[in-house]
Each structure stands twice: as C-alpha cells, then as structure tokens.
Amino acid sequence: MPRLLGVDIPGDKRLEASLPYIYGIGPTRSKQICELAEIDPNIRAKELTDQQLNRIITVIQDNKFVIEGDLRRELQQNLKRLQAINSYRGIRHRRGLPVRGQRTGTNARTRKGPRKTVGVVRNKDAKAGK
C-alpha cells in the first residue's frame, strides 16, 4: 500500500482510481496528474517505483493543488466566515438546515436528522374525569 502525502492509497487498484483516495483529488484531477507525471494511469499503485511516487508528489506540489488538511481547513474557514457575518447560508449551516434552497416542509431528513415527534402530554387525572 503506497503512501502519498500522508495518505495510504490502495495498492490493488489502478493508479487513476487510487489517487482519488486523497482528499481534494477527484477522477479528473487524477487523470491530469497521471498525464503531467507521465505515468500510465492503468498501472497498479503497488507497482509504482519511488521515482514515480516522487514525480506524482512534485506534480501535486508544483501545480499548487490544495489537498487534505489545507483543503479541509479552508472549507471550515469559509463556513465560519459565513456564520460570523450572519449571512443566510451561514444561519442555515448553524441551524443544520438545507443551505441551497431545498424544501424543508417534507424531506430534508439528511440535514435535519431523524424525526422528533412532538406530542401532547396528557394529564392523567383528566381522563378519569376528576
């Protein structure tokens, strides 16, 4: 299992399919990295030599791709900024509601979480007629 930039990528998969295990690298960027590093995207990740691994790392660093911790930190800062300026999107993030205009009357369970049934608490003396 090769290790790239602090992330273990699966060795049994093709290089093109194993690079997206790095946060911030998707399928398109994976193809782009393989082209720039001049490495066959169909080679298995465990078959990579140290020289090829170094070429992949230099391509990622030279093109200033934001990945892993830096990307996560940047996204968190964006959310904090939206919440600090009390924008509509920031308020929706803070309340855990859908941010991009989806309906919330029904559905939206992913953001809102499981249903919390609100019922009436009955007085036990009321039923007996006392």
Rank of each mutant, 00 (worst) to 15 (best):
L36Y: 12
V7C: 09
Q76H: 14
T49Y: 07
Q51V: 13
G129W: 06
Y23I: 08
T117E: 04
V118W: 00
V118F: 11
D125P: 08
I57E: 12
Q102N: 07
I91P: 02
A45D: 10
V99W: 05
G119W: 00
D8E: 15
K31H: 12
T58G: 00
Q52R: 01
I22P: 12
R94A: 07
P41S: 09
K64L: 09
N63P: 09
R111L: 00
K127M: 12
K13E: 10
L15H: 10
T49G: 14
K127Y: 11
T28H: 06
Q83I: 14
N54F: 02
A128T: 11
L36G: 00
G6Q: 06
A17D: 10
Q83P: 01
V7Y: 05
A37T: 11
G113C: 05
D12L: 03
V66G: 15
Q102S: 08
L71T: 03
L75F: 12
D70P: 01
N42E: 15
N123M: 02
G129Q: 08
T110G: 12
T106Y: 01
Y23C: 02
D8W: 06
Y21Q: 11
P10H: 14
K46T: 12
Q83R: 03
V118S: 04
E38W: 07
T110P: 01
L5M: 15
T49E: 00
I25C: 10
V118D: 05
P20A: 11
A17E: 15
R73I: 06
K13W: 13
V120S: 03
L79W: 04
A17G: 02
P2F: 08
L75A: 00
G90F: 04
L53N: 07
K116N: 03
K13S: 09
K116Q: 08
N63S: 15
D12W: 00
P27H: 13
A37W: 14
R72E: 10
L19A: 15
N54Y: 05
G24A: 11
A128R: 13
K112D: 02
E38A: 15
I43S: 07
Q102G: 14
V59F: 03
K31T: 14
Y21T: 09
P27M: 11
A128P: 07
V120L: 13
F65G: 06
T28K: 08
N42T: 07
L15P: 04
E38T: 13
L82V: 08
G24T: 03
R81W: 01
R111F: 00
I9V: 13
V121T: 07
I56L: 06
I33G: 09
N54V: 04
R72P: 02
K112L: 12
V66D: 15
A126F: 11
Q76M: 15
V7A: 06
K46E: 07
R81G: 05
R73W: 03
L82W: 00
R89F: 07
A17Y: 00
D50T: 08
K80S: 10
R3M: 02
L79F: 04
T28W: 02
R55K: 15
Y21L: 02
I9F: 11
A126E: 10
Q83F: 03
G101T: 13
V66E: 10
D12R: 02
I67V: 13
P20D: 13
E47I: 09
Q76S: 10
P114H: 14
G101E: 06
R109L: 04
Q83W: 06
G101M: 08
R44S: 01
Q77C: 05
L75E: 11
C34I: 11
A126I: 04
A128S: 08
R81K: 12
R3P: 00
A37P: 15
N78D: 14
R103Y: 01
L82K: 11
